[in-house]
Amino acid sequence: MGAGIPAKKATFRLVQKFNGVVSAALGNDRLYVLYSSKDGSGKRFFKDFDLNQYDGVEEDVPERLVRSAQPRWRPIFLQGDLLYVYGETPELIDVSQWVACYSEYEGRANPDWAVDGRFAFDGKCIHRAFGWNNYTRGLDIVQNGNLVDHADIDIQYFLPSADGLIFGVRLSTPTFCVYSLREKAIKLEVPLVHYEFANDEPEASVSRCGNQLHVLAGNHVLIIDLTNFSIVGEFAYFNSAFMQSLLAGLKYKNAAFPQYISASMDTLVLSNTNGAGYVLCLSTVDGAVLWGRKSSREMYAANTDGDLVFGLEERRPRAWDKYTGEEVWQASAGTIANTIDVSDNWVVYHQPAGDVQCFTWKKPYSSPHRPS
């Protein structure tokens, strides 16, 4: 079902008075929130909100997997029933049963690892980086809590694996790399020397949609087919009239490079969260610019499979027609959010300090401008 226009007022507002930091992940109609408390010696726990059944009383939702822990922000990601917890003392949790499939609260397989870290899971084994941003020493491979192998690969990955694949910029060479955990093999390397980056530092934001990766590589967008590991699209979006106009008004070109990409099958949106805030929407067919919006403050956008793009502009939740950029919805209250999750009938705005705002709709939005 496609995204729809929500009510102006949030259906639920969570974590408004919590003394600590939070992270959230949305899957279908369930919202998983990780609370890390600053009270006392500190504790960490989850709450599982069935948004269709939730009565609005946050205190009545039980705490899951309570641990003694420092009040640190831990990013979480949901894939199916598996919740990946990165940061201090990483874990992999099966939320269908609320059991930890992997947990470093029970000890680290390699004492040389930093306490803060991230990992990938290939269906059998954990592939653990040596530290939060330490990719230089490759990945240790763990099975049943024991160190069983090592992969000498230096990819700066962030997202959990899907189909046993991880991807990101390599440290030893300026390339974007797709790597198979199961095969211990590089499937594709794309040289990045041809592209321009802010501060001349190669970076890549990635959005996966089915078997396609949409890669924001500086002043270009690449589309990679994961069935045959080939580049099927390359868009020089900096050459567009929108970007040229934006650049003409900037003192420093580095301020024009966006940080995020969010893709659907037919469109992709780029977001710039610095002072030269903008959202730019491109067609995935030929890279043509469908529309752009700019602001004097940071902007952020999340694409959908429907006819809407949800976003943040002037610190207020909004929605724009995917094909024209026309604003069709604006929430009645502002937000401090810096992340947007969309799934089924819900859009959730959140950030580490709390105030998680959940919006829903009654029917999908159908754009009068959708191509026939």
Rank of each mutant, 00 (worst) to 15 (best):
D55N: 14
G56R: 09
G56W: 07
V61N: 04
V61P: 04
P62A: 15
R64G: 00
V66N: 12
S68V: 02
R72Y: 13
W73F: 13
R74I: 02
P75G: 12
I76C: 12
F77I: 01
F77Y: 15
L78C: 09
Q79C: 08
Q79R: 15
G80A: 11
D81N: 15
V85S: 00
T89Y: 14
I93D: 05
I93N: 11
I93S: 08
I93T: 07
Q97I: 06
V99A: 13
C101Y: 13
Y102S: 03
S103A: 14
S103F: 05
E104K: 04
Y105A: 01
P111I: 12
D112I: 02
W113F: 09
W113A: 10
W113G: 01
D116T: 10
R118P: 03
F119D: 00
F121H: 07
K124Q: 12
I126R: 00
I126C: 09
H127Q: 10
R128K: 11
R128L: 13
G131L: 03
W132C: 02
W132N: 07
N133T: 04
N134C: 03
D140F: 04
I141T: 13
I141N: 00
V142R: 01
V142H: 04
V142G: 03
H150D: 00
A151N: 05
D152Y: 11
I153S: 06
Y157E: 01
L159P: 02
S161T: 06
A162W: 08
D163H: 14
V169A: 11
V169M: 13
R170G: 06
R170S: 13
R170L: 05
P174A: 11
C177L: 09
C177P: 03
V178A: 05
S180T: 09
I186W: 10
V190N: 03
V193K: 15
E196F: 06
E196C: 12
